[in-house]
Write a protein that binds this DNA or RNA. Structure first.
Lengths: 215, 215
DNA sequence: GGATCAAATATCCTATAGGATTTCCGAAAC
DNA sequence: GTTTCGGAAATCCTATAGGATATTTGATCC
């Protein structure tokens, strides 16, 4: 095995900045870089084996997506963990979008996409369930057939994912059942039921997450 | 007048990338850089008198906001003008968010902010009306007290602004009257009326803009 | 013991140079 | 007239060096 560039380097010739962006985003989502932590351009450049320019571009994109913030002449840092007010705002926004998305998905989702919906019942671990949950909501958002809806929810769910991972919340039977109800409504092409089931799911999910915040 | 750095250069020591971002965004919104036009890093660097690095950062942020797109080894280009499908998606999204924002603004908006609401009746020109309209919707979104709502709508209204500017649509009496109805409802703190008035305004606005698209 | 101030370090920000790739333009062939 | 091919130009992408700033550490003073 003489494979030289094996460790943590990036080689693909398809845009270094994009590759760095995905990698850092993954590190933030997996809490490998915890919230409210400084992110050094130099360190990342050395660790990933690339120059500072693509790092800088990737961090600029992450900043535009709200995952890191920049202070002039002080560098980048990951956003602090959500507080109560931010959690409230996030779920208020989700309640505006996702029930509507579920309705449209029920009415117009392609059969091939519907077949991919899984409730997460078979998830073997916390991380696996988190990934399946993210994919579940992503599929429904995509099923709504509106790119703005899909993109907005993707951005939001990243923050939900981080928040949930901070507390390693358990895989509740409730969440699985709520997912199943949504899946059933979509398969039945019942827009009203899908919208109601999604609204209920988000409200319950908010209740489960809110308990983790004391301040 | 011996002011040397007067032309189109940038000097403020508060983050060059941010300054470049605002400038390029303004140029795109004013159609000084039309849709579907290539944007050269070198040219911008020479024109603004700064290095390539802040240009690159600013373009990365603009890309994350959907105003330009990048192709590997081919450079940046402004997004093409919205087609019918994108316009439909945009207004579907606005109808999900803005009526709710108007309701919350009516219920909780600060008096000092309410005093700033203007229908745009006194706008002397097309550009002035466009700016007042943007500010009108921004104030209401801010009045909803949810940063996610405010940020999402700000992003969307940029595209509305560009689309409208492409056709230099007239200042309709209708739009002013619709704005007045919203303002009246907010001053009366009537959430139901504010939500209904905003929904009606967006639906009418969609009808006025849709006529410009033939394809 | 706590606070204040100054120097040292680490980091960011900017600028410039060189290699790699796409695009554009013109000529030749069909 | 249309298409194809080749070369030149423009552009992007990456890497490195130097100046400027914030943060940290340590010593001194109260």
């Amino acid at each position: 095995m003489l494979n030289e560039t094996a460790d943590r380097t990036i080689a693909r010739p398809s845009g270094l900045a994009e590759e760095v962006y995905r990698r850092v985003r993954a590190d933030i989502m997996s809490l490998k870089i915890p919230p409210d932590t400084r992110v050094s351009v130099d360190s990342l450049a050395r660790e990933l084996g690339v120059s500072q320019t693509p790092i800088r571009e990737a961090l600029s994109m992450l900043e535009a997506n709200g995952l890191v913030s920049k202070r002039h002449f002080a560098g980048y840092a990951t956003s602090p963990r959500m507080d109560r007010a931010q959690l409230d705002e996030l779920f208020e926004f989700r309640l505006l979008i996702e029930p509507h998305a579920a309705r449209k998905a029920a009415e117009a989702m392609a059969d091939t996409d519907k077949a991919q919906l899984a409730s997460g019942e078979a998830a073997p671990s916390h991380d696996a369930f988190a990934d399946m949950d993210t994919e579940f909501h992503r599929l429904i958002a995509q099923g709504a057939g509106n790119h703005l809806i899909a993109d907005s929810l993707a951005r939001l769910h990243i923050h939900v994912h981080i928040f949930r991972s901070c507390f390693r919340s358990e895989i509740t039977e409730e969440a699985v059942h709520e997912h199943d109800a949504i899946i059933a409504a979509i398969h039945a092409r019942d827009g009203d039921k899908a919208e109601a089931a999604m609204r209920r799911h988000i409200e319950r999910s908010y209740g489960r997450l809110r308990d983790f915040i004391k301040d």
